[in-house]
Simulated assay, not measured.
Amino acid sequence: MTTPIRILVADDDAAKRLAITRILTQAGYAVLQATGGVEALDLAQTAAPDLVLLDVEMPDLSGTDVCLQLRVEPATNALPVLYLSAHRTHSQDRIEGLDSGADGYLVWPMDPRELLAWVRTLLRVRHTERAVRAANADLNHTLESISDAFFALDDAWRVVHFNAAAERALGRDREQVLGRALQDGFPEARGSMLEEKYAEVLRDRRPLVFETYFDRPPYANWYEVRIYPREPGISVYFQVITTRKQAEAERENLIRDLQAALASVKTLRKLLPICAGCKKIRDDEGYWQSVEGYMLQHADVRFSHGLCPDCLRECYADLGDEPASSNGTLR
């Protein structure tokens, strides 16, 4: 079951109060009645009405005083207030009433349809304001929960958002920067490449994503930065990536060291002149060397000596067919 909209009617004139109550009740609203300003203030603070209709002149506490007190209390400062007056009907009275914080000022008696039209309008405004506040609360919760540092600038370069991750990354409380121009809160950014990038997105309304090293203390670090246009201004998301950059540099150094080590390994990839008789090899300087000597100079090898099966039979023919091991030695 839908909870009816509740409207508080405050007027010390019983006939006028009852007439207004009847109009509102017939339109389907739930009505709370107050016979004076003090009671109206109490009900506004405790009964949580959706709208307040106030007589301007009440003996204990005027409607103006009630409205002023409602506006200073966080729980009621957004509560719509509509003045209804049968005596203070001049333009200056309306101006003073609106300047006191009221959302509308009507002269009684009036056409009930006009009164209901004002009621519907103020209730729509209140509903819209609640929706905007809820959306802003959801947005703020999202911005506070993300791991990326985030801040937003308006078109005048004023900082309008600054989340907890940005506080940690930059070492500044949001109270120190909110509402201030970026260059005042962070003079280190003045004239920097980052300032140029912010100006570019503000001007061209196209996002930018990049990595950069900011070399100005106390913010000297590598940053990954994403800048998006918003209305009005820009949104900036960033992460400090110095640790990642250091790891990448170490990896590149290791790759270079490995490549150098591989390049230093001795390999043979060329045509070798070899003697058909003694099997010596001629080196690059024209000297003839044994195979062992040449290989030791030009390849990362060591030698072990033995006899192949053919040489074994030739050198040791008297041993007959005694089988040899695979490396040429006798079993």
Rank of each mutant, 00 (worst) to 15 (best):
I7K: 10
A164R: 15
G233I: 00
T329I: 11
A299S: 09
E96D: 15
A75F: 00
R168N: 06
C315N: 10
K245Q: 10
A34I: 04
A40T: 08
S100D: 06
A299V: 05
L319G: 03
D283K: 12
D65S: 13
A30V: 11
P323S: 07
Y219S: 02
A276Q: 13
I7C: 09
E39C: 04
R190S: 15
Y105I: 04
L32G: 10
R88P: 06
Q26L: 15
M193V: 15
L123W: 01
T64N: 02
W108V: 09
A324L: 06
A75V: 08
R331E: 14
G185T: 06
R302F: 14
L182E: 09
N77K: 09
R256Q: 11
Q176D: 11
L115S: 05
R158C: 05
D257P: 00
A30R: 15
S85K: 10
I146N: 04
F186R: 07
A181F: 04
I23H: 12
A19D: 11
T267L: 07
Q33I: 09
Y287I: 12
H127S: 12
A299G: 03
M110T: 11
S62H: 00
C278P: 07
E175W: 14
E252L: 13
L208R: 05
S62Y: 01
T329P: 01
D65Q: 15
G306C: 13
V31W: 01
K266I: 00
T128C: 02
L312H: 14
D13H: 10
S290L: 04
H161S: 09
A247D: 05
D184Y: 07
V38W: 07
V201Y: 00
L262E: 07
F210D: 04
S304P: 01
D11S: 03
V31I: 03
G293Q: 11
E96V: 07
D300K: 08
R331C: 14
G36I: 08
P207D: 06
V125M: 08
L254S: 04
F210Q: 02
R244G: 00
Q45E: 15
P109I: 05
N327V: 15
F303G: 11
T64M: 09
P187M: 13
N253A: 11
P49T: 07
A220Q: 12
D184T: 12
E114M: 14
V132C: 03
D50A: 15
K197C: 06
P273V: 10
S290Y: 08
R94A: 13
A15H: 13
L123V: 00
